[in-house]
Design a protein around this nucleic acid. Structure first.
Lengths: 170, 170
DNA sequence: GATCGAATGTAGCATCCGCTACGGAAGCTG
DNA sequence: CAGCTTCCGTAGCGGATGCTACATTCGATC
């Protein structure tokens, strides 16, 4: 790997960390350059445009997410209700809340069709759905969208400090 | 009502229409002034700040939403599954999709705590929850958050062009 | 008709935005 | 050393941002 590629990779990593911790608000080229320890000039040089950089960063987040989920919950398949319970518990305990917040910010931009947000949100959603499907019993894989919907809706309520559905304690 | 109050009301109405049709992207003071047929100078004069104007507009949207829902679905209480079905059908048929998009944009900004978005999103969410509660059988009012979650999650999937949960046809 | 406050137009401030033009430095190749 | 490519710093463009200062116009009241 060339020096350039190494640098690009490091830049993307720094941007990912910044996005996860700060959200989409502070994503000016000059801010991103600061967290990368370089200049806006150089970010354009390496990535061509701000959107291309963000797209790569979102891609890296997508790739990292399933890895994190796998590490936390293992490959075991389980019934829908139990899987939902485990996922919500994981969000409670793990470092997932900032990513969930970022996810909702991303969806908020994606619904207008704005790129690169829409494409990134769809990619993230698809991977998430696939992960859920892979962790449901094979004969109930078709319930993945339903579980996804319940999970996302519950997270929305949580993020807005509105009352959550009552769940049977595990 | 004074001339000023009439004008303010008309301005808020114009801003509401603009928000619903265009979303949160094009909300510069000068853009809002254009759709109101006035100047940025005058919007500040009447409302004090852009945020105050937006807050009033979101308030008007909240107020209008339950009215629209009532008009479409009537006051009848119904079982959770049926209510969900009816709500999703209403979104399918009615002019609600732009409002739903705006709602998700609003949530996207609210999750970072940014005002006036957070307060407005919470208000809208609370009213929506209350509406659902009022349309569930009295002894099942506690299932409102669950229904809200399923509805919002399903709408998210729909807005992102991801596969929706299978529903029994009504 | 003088007066006064409400309403409004004009111009501008300070700051940010993504991006670019230009030129210099560094390092490799002949 | 010459010449070329890669890398990067400086400066700035044109436009948008929320908001303000100032001055004017207008309509109602005394």
């Amino acid at each position: 790997m060339t020096r350039s590629e190494e640098k690009r990779e490091a830049f993307v990593e720094a941007v990912v960390a910044h996005l996860v911790s700060e959200g989409l608000a502070d994503t000016g080229l000059r801010s991103l350059a600061r967290v990368c320890g370089t200049s806006d000039r150089m970010l354009i040089y390496h990535f061509g445009s701000k959107d291309a950089l963000l797209e790569q960063a979102f891609g890296a987040i997508v790739a990292g997410l399933t890895a994190q989920l796998d590490a936390l919950l293992g490959p075991r398949r389980r019934a829908p209700a139990r899987l939902l319970e485990d996922l919500l518990a994981a969000v409670d305990r793990g470092p997932f809340l900032p990513v969930v917040r970022l996810w909702f910010e991303l969806v908020g931009r994606a619904v207008t069709g704005e790129e690169p947000y829409r494409a990134s949100a769809r990619a993230l959603g698809e991977r998430w759905l696939a992960w859920i499907e892979a962790h449901l019993p094979r004969d109930r894989a078709d319930r993945a969208p339903e579980l996804f919907a319940t999970l996302e809706g519950t997270l929305m309520l949580r993020l807005l400090d509105l009352p959550e559905p009552e769940r049977p304690h595990a």
